[in-house]
Design a protein around this nucleic acid. Structure first.
Lengths: 126, 126
DNA sequence: AATGAGAATTAGAATAATTCTAAAAATGAA
DNA sequence: TTCATTTTTAGAATTATTCTAATTCTCATT
């Protein structure tokens, strides 16, 4: 594992913020100012191929990268904000239903985050 | 609803194939040869905003459009093939777990489709 | 039938994210 | 040190999608 890969993995694992490639690039540049964005993409793709990181795709936004420990996501329907959420593992339940092995699953719950829910109430109240 | 919107909705609802904007464009052109791709995007976005269609985003592929009737998706981890799957509605179960209202959820099961599973066996066998 | 306002459509330019390419640099085994 | 391999780099290319501004359509009202 190269120094860039190592640092990128560290960035992803020690932040809880679902960063985009650009954001990771910005953080990485604080340590290695000469690094190229292509290197970030190279390493993200390699790490992803090795299943060391996870890619989170939310509609209409650039891909975000996440640590690989099992957890689910909450997505605000209005503003797209992404929040971690630990829900019970559904693998067994789902395998029972479909009747064949599942490698993994991706579960996103759509909700209204506090801010967006408040906005809505304020508008209604007027 | 304009004739284009109507036809696009019809295409999405009567096919089971999760088409991309391009593919919908190709089908639409059989009826309206002069139509522009931008019109397809305009109408897809409008229909999606009105919640008349669903957008399915699979990593590394262009967005696909789907009818809105509740169902889940199977995604082949290897080739990306997308298949419909009707699983029990998890909304109640999930709401109970998180403790607040959920607007919807998006569940994708990762598996190996028959072809990819076969490929893998063949390679191993050699 | 003519007018005009607003909506829809068009072609093509623009953008954003990501991938590709080819050359340069680093690494590491022999 | 040499050679081969891997990694990185800069920038071009690509892809999907959105934007823009001009044009066309629709249709209620004269």
């Amino acid at each position: 594992m190269t120094k860039y890969a190592k640092k990128i993995l560290e960035i992803i694992e020690t932040t809880r913020s679902h960063m985009t490639a650009e954001q990771i690039f910005d953080v990485l540049r604080q340590t290695y100012p000469q690094v190229a964005l292509a290197t970030v993409y190279n390493n993200l793709n390699r790490l992803w191929g090795e299943e060391k990181i996870r890619k989170v795709t939310v509609e209409g936004m650039p891909d975000r990268y996440d640590r690989v420990v099992r957890h689910d996501h909450l997505v605000c329907k209005k503003c797209g904000r992404l929040v971690d959420m630990d829900l019970a593992d559904l693998t067994d339940q789902l395998e029972k239903q479909v009747g064949f092995p599942i490698l993994a699953y991706d579960l996103k719950l759509l909700y209204l985050c506090d801010e967006c829910a408040t906005d809505r109430k304020e508008k209604k109240g007027k």
